[in-house]
């Protein structure tokens, strides 16, 4: 086993354990913090694939922005063990059925995707996740959707400022 394989297994174990802890921990704040750990592990995978830009964007958007928003809301709500709703039998049954069906669909999708069978991931050498490749692709093949979504973001930002200005 070389260093990259060891790192891969470590990161995968970290990602899976943290994802389990998101569900298992009783305290919602702990869940959010474990979710941040999941995003870190996934960013580590991106770096192993030589997709440094994706890794950093993953950290900025998910760990830095969305999760901070989650933390804000959950910390202010002051959720305690007493305020947690009681779990009854039906609720657990519905959860198991819906979660199980999702798992079944995902497993069957992966089994049907024959083109990823027996393929190795490009480690260190791929350049798909680098900023130059992504930028060229975004401004040539996908320029219309990219521009439309950027206008959407800009208008959201301007909207926030306008709402703030109206006293």
């Amino acid at each position: 086993m070389n260093a990259i394989e060891i790192l891969f297994w470590l990161l995968s174990a970290l990602a899976i354990i943290s994802a389990m802890m998101v569900l298992l921990s009783k305290n919602p704040v702990h869940s959010v913090l474990w979710l941040i750990a999941v995003f870190f592990a996934i960013s580590g995978h991106y770096i192993l694939l030589n997709a440094q830009f994706l890794a950093i964007v993953n950290i900025i958007v998910y760990a830095g922005a969305i999760m901070v928003l989650f933390l804000f809301v959950i910390m202010l709500m002051n959720l305690n063990k007493e305020s947690e709703p009681k779990r009854n039998f039906w609720r657990i049954l519905i959860g198991i059925i819906s979660g199980g069906s999702l798992l079944m669909i995902l497993v069957s999708l992966i089994r049907q995707a024959t083109e990823i069978n027996n393929k190795n991931a490009l480690m260190e050498s791929g350049n798909i996740g680098l900023i130059k490749t992504l930028g060229k692709l975004l401004f040539s093949d996908y320029v219309v959707p990219f521009e439309i979504s950027s206008v959407l973001f800009l208008s959201a930002m301007v909207g926030a400022v306008v709402i703030g200005k109206k006293e």
Binding site: Q52, I59, V68
Partner: peptide, 18 residues
Amino acid sequence: DINIGVLYVTAISSLSVI
């Protein structure tokens, strides 16, 4: 000398809030 140095700095510094 990572090839996205400045972005790396902004990304990591946004984590101190956690």
